[in-house]
Design a protein around this nucleic acid. Structure first.
Length: 213
DNA sequence: ATCTTTTGACCGATT
DNA sequence: TAATCGGTCAAAAGA
């Protein structure tokens, strides 16, 4: 019954994924250095952007060799034509010196306690795993959206210092952001639920694949 | 009582 | 074929 049946008890990530670089969702407040890579895990979540192949980052420039190997792998998968319905969205908070004091989770490593139930992206996440990757250089945390019918996942990669290196979203939410009760004063500054077309319009920004590092 | 985080183990993919 | 890496599961503990 669980909507998240994509991962059958056997490990291994769903392989289908297409790279679509989109503007960071929370970038509104995160800053210009954010990047959001989003990929769609497997089934629904994303609208097949068949017509977007033209802008597919698969055109990854050779110079991008500096890009994280993971991203390269993703691009590779896409190029191989694995599945065109995945949209990886990476949010790079890699500002080399992002003070670990952002509102929730995203900005600051939360070593313990509720990490980022409602992160800057406005959704609720549940952590289901953590791994040291890239030679223990980074700690990658795995989150799932807690919404009943939402298959969206995200990976948050942190450095050993706790700084967020990047955030990768898998899939798109097909539900509105959970209503967050905020003081009116704050509500004025930040509208929680924006009319932003979450999935209706797949923001595909090709030129934005610039990945940092 | 419920939900989330933590952590080790398992399994598949890749090299 | 074996080793390594990466992603997820599941039990336990804490809030």
């Amino acid at each position: 019954m669980s909507p998240c049946n994509e991962e059958s008890s056997s490990g291994s990530a769903s392989t289908s994924q297409s790279v679509t670089v989109t503007p960071a969702e929370g970038s509104t407040e995160e800053g210009p250095q954010n990047e959001t890579k989003q990929m769609n895990p497997d089934n629904q979540a994303l609208i097949p952007q068949a017509d977007h192949e033209g802008v597919n980052p698969s055109a990854a420039p050779p110079e991008m060799s500096e890009v994280s190997d993971r991203y390269s792998s993703l691009v590779q998968l896409v190029q191989e034509g694995k599945n065109a319905s995945v949209t990886p969205e990476r949010t790079l908070l890699s500002s080399p010196r992002q003070p670990p004091s952002l509102p929730t989770g995203q900005g600051g490593s939360v070593p313990s306690g509720k990490a980022e139930k409602a992160s800057v992206d406005g959704y609720n996440w549940r952590k289901y795993g953590q791994k040291n990757v890239k030679g223990n250089e980074f700690i990658r945390s795995y989150y799932k959206c807690t919404h009943p019918n939402c298959l969206v996942k995200k990976q948050v990669e942190r450095s050993l210092e706790g700084q967020i290196i990047d955030t990768v979203y898998f899939g798109q939410h097909d539900h509105p952001k959970p209503q967050v009760k905020v003081p009116v004063a704050i509500g004025i500054v930040a509208s929680i639920v924006e009319p932003k077309p979450e999935k209706a319009s797949p923001t595909v920004i090709e030129g934005k694949r610039a990945l940092y590092f």
